[in-house]
Design a protein around this nucleic acid. Structure first.
Length: 490
RNA sequence: GGCGACGUAGCCAAGCGGUAAGGCGGAGCUCUGCAAAAGCUCUAUUCCCCAGUUCGAAUCUGGGCGUCGCCUCCA
């Protein structure tokens, strides 16, 4: 079994066969930081993060490039409205985006090229396109002549006749054909501009990806990815630019992620129906968001709702507690061979699912199945074996099993600042706290100790009082055979 | 209007010719002095509708109905 992926260009699931194996080149269209990133961006980059992790797992040496289109009409407009430079607008949104990617455990790409850092390569490429008869200089910029590229429309399944219906030239555009698109836009007064042989201006959308992917990875790319909404015109235009110059295919495998819907509609900048990703991450667990996306097929549209993210949060908690239990299971000598075989069968099913066009939904289901059988595996001495597999599997899909949904490891984040003094004022008569300087952990431990003493003495009134007091400040106790544990529920 | 995707339990969702994965929720139960956010069990005779192909269809074909996307900036 080997990895199969759906190729948009051929509309079929195909074996993944990198041309220079074990080296793999992967270019994904990244962010245009003209506005705050939203959950839709997160879905796309989360998927490619998992694909990249899996390719690395399979032994490929992946070079992953995710670009930043840091110059476009919209950021210029925002900058002018706010009276700041476009680069300030871009820097602000990009910093916020990168913080969110960190919180989601999206690994950094190997290269994150900015369009404005590749103006030289862009200008050179436009020059070559003009020389080759694929582009022309007009009054307001340089345009790509779509009619000069016979295969135009192959990726998106369109032909130029269909596209021409309804197509029109916008006022102020001096192009010859309505389908032609801008490679270089001459600057108007007050707009940022770079020098070019044809006049000062800025690159049009599309050419930056052709130039940067060529500069960093060359042709053909093993994988070129992005959201479904980029198929047309963005990727179609990238193909027209790149293939007109290099003859062969720009990429062998075109991978597109399904869009995120919000209230049944596409989440997008233009519709304005989105919450900034950074705000959403303040309200919901980042790993639960990752699990939610993983539980759906990457190519299908996904409607985001509050109940769905809450469900994913519960599911994640279950996965984590099962992992904890497996890891804590006593090493009872060698695992029984039947138990070993069971763990191996889960392992096989998990990887078969990922090989099948990254069926993460089925892969996650395998993990939940294992969770159901965890107790039996522990009893058969296969606890640590199963824990090792779960650790590997969760890591592979970017879920960090050591990070809690209820962050016991960082209770200060949600506990009140005066936690210890509040507890002390409620229970000072029965529990000795080491003054206000005591840490929340130490204070909780002191209460648990006092309560267990009370339970042993059958003083259940006091034991209940201690439980309730902790509950009032946001700490829930859970008695187990191994002792009393606590979680923060504030 | 053109092109494309999708419609599976209360909700999310996999499966895409061999007799309905998984998650959430719900119900019941277990352990517990109490409490669980802990564990266990159950939870679709059926896959939008209608016709057809087939020994057999959620899966294929044709026709409806509905939702969404692209065709203009978009992950």
């Amino acid at each position: 079994m080997s990895l199969q992926l759906y190729n948009t260009r051929t509309r079929a699931v195909e074996p993944f066969a990198p041309v220079r194996a074990p080296d793999v080149t992967m270019y994904v269209c990244g962010l245009t930081p003209s506005a705050e990133a939203h959950l839709g961006h997160a879905r796309s980059f989360l998927f490619f993060d998992v694909l990249r992790r899996y390719l690395v797992h399979l032994g490929y040496r992946v070079t992953y490039v995710r670009n930043v289109t840091d110059i476009d009409d919209r950021s210029i407009a925002t900058a002018q409205a706010e009276g700041v430079s476009f680069s300030a607008v871009v820097a602000r949104h990009l910093a916020s985006f990168n913080r969110s990617m960190d919180r989601l455990h999206v690994l950094e790409p190997d290269h994150e090229p900015h369009a404005t850092a590749y103006i030289g390569q862009i200008v050179a490429m436009i020059g070559s396109l003009i020389d080759g008869g694929h582009a022309y200089v007009a009054a307001d910029g340089v345009y790509y002549a779509v009619g000069s590229f016979a295969c135009y429309g192959a990726l998106s399944g369109r032909n130029t006749d269909e596209l021409l219906i309804g197509a029109r030239i916008a006022p102020g555009e001096d192009k010859r054909d309505p389908l032609d698109f801008a490679l270089w836009k001459f600057a108007k007064a007050g707009e940022p501009a770079w020098a070019s042989p044809w006049g000062a201006g800025r690159p049009g959308w599309h050419i930056e990806c052709s130039a940067m992917s060529h500069a960093l990875l060359g042709e053909p790319l093993d994988i070129h990815g992005g959201g479904f909404d980029l198929i047309f015109p963005h990727h179609e235009n990238e193909i027209a630019q790149t293939e007109a110059l290099y003859g062969g295919p720009m990429a062998n495998m075109w991978v597109h992620g399904g869009l995120l819907l919000f209230d049944g509609k596409k989440m997008s900048k233009s519709l304005g129906n989105f919450e900034p990703l950074s705000d959403l991450l303040d309200r919901h667990d980042a790993q639960a968001i990752r699990l939610l996306f993983l539980q759906a097929g990457y190519r299908k549209p996904l409607n985001f709702t509050e109940p769905s993210i809450e469900g994913a949060t519960s599911g994640l908690r279950r996965l984590q507690s099962a992992y904890d239990a497996l890891r804590a299971a006593p090493a009872a000598g060698a695992a029984q061979s039947s138990a070993r075989a069971v763990v191996e069968s889960y392992e096989r099913r998990f990887f078969v699912a990922l090989d099948d066009d990254m069926n993460t939904s089925a892969a996650v289901a395998v993990l939940f199945d294992l969770t159901s059988e965890a107790r039996a595996l522990e009893d058969a001495g296969a606890g640590s074996l199963a824990a090792a597999f779960m650790h590997e599997a969760l890591g592979l899909i970017g879920l960090d099993p050591s990070q809690r949904v209820h962050p016991n490891d960082d209770p200060h984040r949600i506990l009140h600042a005066d936690f210890v003094s509040r507890l002390s004022s409620m229970l000072g008569d029965v529990v000795r706290f080491n003054g206000a300087a005591a840490s929340p952990e130490a204070a909780i431990a002191a209460v648990i100790k006092a309560r267990n003493r009370a339970r042993l003495a059958k003083d259940f009134r006091l034991a209940d009082r201690l439980r309730i007091a902790l509950s009032d400040v946001g700490v829930h106790l859970h008695d187990t055979k191994e002792g009393t544990t606590w979680t923060v529920v504030a």
